[in-house]
Amino acid sequence: VKVFRALYTFEPRTPDELYFEEGDIIYITDMSDTNWWKGTSKGRTGLIPSNYVAEQ
């Protein structure tokens, strides 16, 4: 598990995607895809765009 911080707010387009706000901490559990990672924030899990976060 790696810890990342959201650089921007992300509004999901599908139920599989995770909503998060700029500054949120996201725990990444799967980075197997280059563009979409699986992450958890505020008790919810979903896909996030990798270019919206920076490693802490």
Results as ranks from 00 to 15, higher is better:
residue 15 P to C: 09
residue 30 D to A: 05
residue 28 I to C: 02
residue 15 P to Y: 08
residue 28 I to W: 00
residue 7 L to K: 09
residue 7 L to S: 04
residue 52 Y to C: 12
residue 3 V to L: 12
residue 50 S to C: 12
residue 2 K to I: 08
residue 27 Y to S: 06
residue 42 K to N: 15
residue 13 R to D: 08
residue 35 N to E: 13
residue 15 P to G: 10
residue 56 Q to M: 15
residue 44 R to D: 04
residue 43 G to K: 04
residue 41 S to A: 12
residue 47 L to A: 05
residue 6 A to Q: 01
residue 23 G to M: 03
residue 44 R to L: 08
residue 43 G to V: 02
residue 6 A to R: 01
residue 3 V to Q: 09
residue 37 W to S: 00
residue 42 K to C: 11
residue 9 T to D: 10
residue 53 V to A: 03
residue 33 D to H: 08
residue 34 T to M: 14
residue 19 Y to F: 13
residue 6 A to S: 03
residue 43 G to F: 04
residue 47 L to K: 10
residue 22 E to L: 10
residue 43 G to C: 07
residue 47 L to S: 05
residue 24 D to M: 05
residue 10 F to D: 00
residue 37 W to I: 02
residue 33 D to R: 06
residue 35 N to C: 15
residue 16 D to T: 09
residue 27 Y to W: 11
residue 20 F to W: 01
residue 29 T to N: 08
residue 26 I to R: 00
residue 32 S to P: 07
residue 49 P to S: 04
residue 49 P to H: 06
residue 4 F to E: 00
residue 37 W to C: 03
residue 24 D to E: 07
residue 36 W to N: 03
residue 1 V to A: 13
residue 40 T to P: 02
residue 31 M to Y: 07
residue 29 T to G: 05
residue 48 I to K: 01
residue 44 R to E: 06
residue 17 E to D: 09
residue 27 Y to N: 06
residue 6 A to E: 00
residue 49 P to D: 04
residue 7 L to Y: 03
residue 53 V to M: 11
residue 11 E to V: 15
residue 9 T to E: 04
residue 2 K to W: 14
residue 10 F to W: 15
residue 22 E to F: 08
residue 3 V to I: 14
residue 33 D to M: 06
residue 16 D to V: 08
residue 13 R to V: 08
residue 37 W to E: 00
residue 30 D to G: 05
residue 12 P to R: 05
residue 18 L to R: 00
residue 5 R to C: 10
residue 26 I to K: 00
residue 52 Y to D: 02
residue 3 V to T: 11
residue 46 G to C: 04
residue 33 D to C: 06
residue 49 P to E: 03
residue 22 E to S: 10
residue 54 A to H: 10
residue 34 T to S: 14
residue 2 K to V: 10
residue 26 I to S: 00
residue 8 Y to R: 14
residue 19 Y to Q: 11
residue 11 E to A: 11
residue 32 S to N: 11
residue 41 S to V: 15
residue 29 T to R: 06
residue 49 P to M: 06
residue 42 K to H: 12
residue 36 W to I: 05
residue 9 T to W: 04
residue 24 D to V: 04
residue 24 D to L: 03
residue 49 P to K: 06
residue 25 I to P: 04
residue 46 G to Y: 03
residue 4 F to H: 04
residue 56 Q to K: 10
residue 34 T to R: 14
residue 27 Y to F: 14
residue 2 K to Y: 11
residue 45 T to K: 09
residue 25 I to N: 03
residue 17 E to G: 11
residue 3 V to Y: 10
residue 17 E to C: 09
residue 50 S to V: 10
residue 56 Q to F: 15
residue 53 V to P: 02
residue 13 R to F: 07
residue 36 W to C: 07
residue 29 T to M: 09
residue 25 I to M: 09
residue 52 Y to M: 12
residue 12 P to I: 06
residue 18 L to Q: 00
residue 19 Y to D: 07
residue 16 D to I: 08
residue 19 Y to P: 13
residue 10 F to Q: 05
residue 17 E to A: 07
residue 8 Y to G: 06
residue 44 R to M: 11
residue 23 G to W: 05
residue 32 S to D: 08
residue 16 D to C: 10
residue 43 G to M: 04
residue 26 I to D: 00
residue 20 F to G: 01
residue 44 R to I: 09
residue 5 R to K: 15
residue 36 W to Y: 07
residue 50 S to G: 04
residue 52 Y to S: 10
residue 10 F to K: 04
residue 37 W to R: 01
residue 31 M to L: 06
residue 45 T to H: 12
residue 27 Y to C: 13
residue 21 E to P: 01
residue 3 V to N: 04
residue 42 K to P: 01
residue 21 E to D: 07
residue 34 T to I: 13
residue 34 T to L: 14
residue 17 E to H: 12
residue 45 T to C: 10
residue 45 T to Y: 14
residue 13 R to L: 10
residue 55 E to A: 13
residue 21 E to I: 08
residue 26 I to C: 03
residue 7 L to Q: 04
residue 34 T to W: 08
residue 27 Y to E: 10
residue 10 F to V: 07
residue 45 T to S: 14
residue 11 E to K: 13
residue 28 I to N: 00
residue 56 Q to C: 15
residue 1 V to E: 11
residue 47 L to D: 02
residue 13 R to P: 04
residue 13 R to C: 12
residue 28 I to E: 00
residue 38 K to W: 15
residue 53 V to Q: 01
residue 34 T to Q: 14
residue 28 I to D: 00
residue 29 T to Q: 09
residue 12 P to A: 11
residue 30 D to E: 10
residue 3 V to K: 11
residue 22 E to T: 10
residue 4 F to W: 09
residue 21 E to A: 09
residue 49 P to V: 02
residue 39 G to H: 02
residue 50 S to H: 07
residue 37 W to V: 02
residue 8 Y to S: 07
residue 29 T to I: 13
residue 47 L to E: 02
residue 20 F to D: 00
residue 22 E to R: 13
residue 37 W to A: 00
residue 45 T to D: 07
residue 12 P to T: 05
residue 2 K to F: 12
residue 18 L to Y: 01
residue 42 K to M: 10
residue 41 S to G: 04
residue 52 Y to P: 02
residue 26 I to G: 00
residue 39 G to A: 09
residue 36 W to H: 03
residue 37 W to P: 00
residue 18 L to M: 11
residue 42 K to V: 03
residue 41 S to T: 14
residue 48 I to R: 03
residue 27 Y to H: 08
residue 3 V to G: 06
residue 1 V to T: 12
residue 10 F to E: 00
residue 32 S to I: 11
residue 27 Y to V: 11
residue 43 G to Y: 03
residue 46 G to Q: 00
residue 46 G to I: 02
residue 3 V to F: 10
residue 51 N to R: 12
residue 38 K to A: 08
residue 52 Y to G: 07
residue 31 M to W: 12
residue 3 V to H: 07
residue 37 W to F: 10
residue 21 E to W: 04
residue 56 Q to W: 15
residue 12 P to W: 06
residue 12 P to Q: 04
residue 11 E to D: 09
residue 5 R to H: 08
residue 2 K to M: 11
residue 55 E to M: 12
residue 20 F to M: 09
residue 31 M to R: 08
residue 9 T to Y: 05
residue 14 T to I: 08
residue 44 R to Y: 06
residue 9 T to P: 06
residue 27 Y to I: 13
residue 26 I to P: 00
residue 2 K to S: 08
residue 36 W to S: 02
residue 28 I to K: 00
residue 26 I to E: 00
residue 28 I to F: 01
residue 46 G to E: 01
residue 35 N to P: 07
residue 13 R to H: 10
residue 14 T to D: 09
residue 35 N to F: 15
residue 54 A to N: 06
residue 40 T to G: 06
residue 54 A to E: 14
residue 44 R to V: 11
residue 54 A to V: 15
residue 7 L to C: 11
residue 2 K to R: 15
residue 5 R to N: 04
residue 3 V to W: 12
residue 41 S to D: 02
residue 42 K to L: 07
residue 10 F to Y: 15
residue 41 S to M: 12
residue 28 I to L: 04
residue 45 T to V: 12
residue 52 Y to A: 14
residue 53 V to L: 14
residue 48 I to D: 01
residue 52 Y to L: 10
residue 40 T to K: 09
residue 33 D to P: 05
residue 37 W to H: 02
residue 9 T to K: 11
residue 51 N to K: 11
residue 54 A to F: 11
residue 1 V to P: 12
residue 31 M to K: 07
residue 32 S to C: 09
residue 23 G to D: 05
residue 55 E to V: 12
residue 28 I to Y: 01
residue 48 I to L: 14
residue 11 E to I: 15
residue 4 F to T: 04
residue 42 K to G: 14
residue 40 T to V: 12
residue 3 V to E: 09
residue 38 K to R: 14
residue 25 I to Q: 05
residue 24 D to Y: 04
residue 54 A to T: 15
residue 55 E to T: 08
residue 37 W to M: 03
residue 12 P to F: 06
residue 27 Y to T: 08
residue 46 G to H: 02
residue 54 A to G: 08
residue 32 S to Y: 08
residue 20 F to R: 01
residue 2 K to C: 14
residue 54 A to P: 02
residue 39 G to F: 02
residue 17 E to M: 12
residue 35 N to M: 14
residue 20 F to T: 02
residue 21 E to H: 09
residue 52 Y to V: 07
residue 49 P to T: 09
residue 15 P to V: 11
residue 18 L to A: 02
residue 3 V to C: 14
residue 2 K to N: 07
residue 31 M to C: 13
residue 32 S to L: 10
residue 1 V to G: 13
residue 16 D to A: 13
residue 18 L to I: 08
residue 7 L to D: 01
residue 35 N to G: 12
residue 4 F to A: 05
residue 44 R to F: 08
residue 13 R to M: 11
residue 53 V to T: 02
residue 9 T to H: 08
residue 14 T to Q: 10
residue 19 Y to N: 07
residue 14 T to H: 14
residue 41 S to H: 12
residue 21 E to R: 10
residue 37 W to T: 00
residue 17 E to S: 05
residue 11 E to R: 13
residue 25 I to A: 06
residue 8 Y to C: 15
residue 45 T to W: 15
residue 1 V to N: 11
residue 17 E to P: 00
residue 14 T to G: 13
residue 5 R to F: 14
residue 55 E to F: 13
residue 56 Q to A: 15
residue 12 P to D: 02
residue 7 L to M: 10
residue 25 I to E: 08
residue 56 Q to G: 12
residue 4 F to I: 02
residue 9 T to L: 06
residue 9 T to Q: 06
residue 31 M to D: 09
